[in-house]
Amino acid sequence: MLKWLTSAIIVAIVATGCNTVARNETSPSPQSNGRVEAQQTDPRKKEIKNSEQVAVHLEQLAKGINGVRNAHCVVLGNTAIVGIDVDARMERSRVGTIKYSVAEAFRKDPYGIDALVTADMDLQQRLNEIGADIRRGRPLAGFAEELADIMGRIVPQLPRDVLPQEPGRQELQR
């Protein structure tokens, strides 16, 4: 019995060893590093030289999607942020579909390939105001004001941080 068990173990080890060798022979050798280079087929992002022209172009592209009532675009450096205006009573899933359709249209456009698309009503309006400030010649101030307003809405208000008002002092609450 012991001879039979020893023979079976030896056969199993030899069979396993042969299997491993065969597998190693079929795998590519690290020394034969044959480089394969693939060409990119996705549209490449173009460098934005005229941000106002690109903003108008992306707004028109977004407005061409069914369900988009209006669009506002702000270009920051080489990135565009596009806010789309949809019917406020529209279901969330439908809004998501429209936003996806806009992103799909942008994917085929070299200026829109890396654009950010939002359907948030507040952000869309703020993008409109930033765009108006840029056209008025105050891009940094307008952006800083809107960013401060956005942050003011995002940062939570903790009741522990609220100080009681002095009796003689009346202030408007935002």
Rank of each mutant, 00 (worst) to 15 (best):
L2N: 08
W4H: 09
L5W: 07
L5P: 00
L5C: 04
T6G: 01
T6N: 06
A8M: 10
I9N: 01
V14D: 06
T16I: 09
T16H: 07
T16S: 15
C18E: 11
C18A: 15
V21F: 09
V21T: 11
V21C: 07
N24T: 02
S29H: 14
Q31G: 07
S32C: 01
G34C: 00
R35E: 13
V36A: 09
Q40P: 00
T41Y: 12
T41M: 13
D42V: 07
P43H: 10
R44H: 03
K45Q: 15
K45E: 10
K46Q: 08
I48W: 03
K49G: 06
S51T: 12
E52L: 11
E52G: 14
Q53K: 15
H57W: 09
E59R: 10
Q60V: 06
L61H: 05
A62P: 03
K63E: 14
R69T: 15
N70P: 01
H72M: 05
H72T: 11
V74Y: 04
V74N: 07
V74P: 08
L76G: 09
A80V: 06
V86L: 06
D87A: 14
D87Q: 08
R89Y: 06
E91T: 14
R94Y: 01
V95L: 10
V95E: 10
G96P: 03
T97Y: 00
T97H: 01
T97C: 00
T97E: 09
K99D: 10
Y100W: 03
E104D: 14
E104H: 12
R107F: 13
G112F: 15
A115F: 11
T118N: 05
M121W: 13
D122F: 12
Q125G: 11
Q125K: 07
A132S: 13
D133E: 10
I134G: 13
I134F: 14
R135E: 04
R135A: 10
R135N: 04
R138K: 13
P139V: 03
A141F: 08
A141N: 06
E145Y: 04
A148N: 12
G152N: 13
G152D: 11
R153Q: 10
P156A: 07
L158G: 00
P159S: 05
D161W: 00
P164H: 03
P164K: 02
Q165H: 09
G168E: 13
G168A: 04
G168C: 01
L172R: 06
Q173P: 00
R174K: 08
R174P: 01
R174C: 02
R174F: 10
